[in-house]
């Protein structure tokens, strides 16, 4: 079920609405819409260049991704959310991309990931969504550190991640050599992190709702 006692089904930030991805709430039309974008959206090759997946070749791949993320959610290991700009934004209500998180309960960490359709780049959506997940990690899940790994060659994302992690009091931990395997080859990543304490001291002033309830307000 999308209903999860810890992970919200819907997250609203100032400009975005994030909807949990789960097989229970998506119908065939949703899956096919998801597939259209993951397979043949304009610039999809550029969008996926530094991601852990390649453009989908069949709707079955899209469905398997959705099923995998549903299982992770059911097991409390992570979640995936589709991104929609809210009213007032250019392209309000359209599917703008997908973001998610993985939780390592033993290490008390959350790792973030996101991709946006190219039409939605450059608006600061990534940072806005990151603050929402950091709030979830620290205020709700009581985790200690939020992590973001960026492929060293992905300079565009590095700049964005550097900016929002530093704004929240964190920053780069260092370079992890041969850390991920991309198309069969090991690649290096830069790791950025924000701790619970750093976030408390640098919490951005923003309005957030988890399943309709206001959260993350300054105390």
């Amino acid at each position: 079920m999308t209903d999860h006692p810890l992970f919200p089904a819907r997250i609203e930030t100032d400009r975005l609405r994030l909807e949990a991805v789960h097989t229970d709430t998506l119908d065939r039309e949703d899956v096919l819409e998801f597939y259209d974008i993951c397979s043949s959206d304009p610039n999809i090759e550029e969008v996926t260049q530094y991601l852990t997946w390649d453009p989908h070749r069949t709707p079955k791949e899209t469905l398997e991704f959705i099923e995998h993320m549903s299982d992770r959610r059911d097991e409390s290991e992570g979640g995936s959310y589709t991104i929609y700009p809210r009213a007032g934004e250019d392209g309000a209500g359209t599917f703008a991309g997908d973001c998610g998180f993985g939780v390592d309960w033993e290490k008390r960490t959350m790792t973030l990931g996101i991709w946006l359709r190219k039409a939605f780049w450059g608006r600061g959506y990534s940072g806005e969504r990151a603050v929402a997940f950091m709030t979830l990690a620290f205020d709700v899940l009581d985790l200690e550190v939020v992590l973001v790994d960026v492929w060293v060659e992905n300079e565009r994302s590095r700049r964005a991640v550097e900016r929002y992690t530093e704004a929240c009091g964190g920053g780069q931990d260092g370079r992890l050599r041969n850390w991920h395997v991309q198309d069969g080859d090991p690649i290096d990543v830069y790791r950025y992190s924000v701790s619970h304490e750093e976030f408390q001291a640098n919490r951005p002033d923003t309005t957030l709702r988890f399943d309709g309830e206001p959260v993350g307000l300054l105390e």
Binding site: E106, K107, R108, E144, L176, R191
Partner: peptide, 24 residues
Amino acid sequence: SDGLFRNARCLDGEPVDLHRFTVT
């Protein structure tokens, strides 16, 4: 020395930070 990575490992059930060094 490639950095100090937070909560990178668990030792006796507790998360610990780790300095990481590499030689290529």
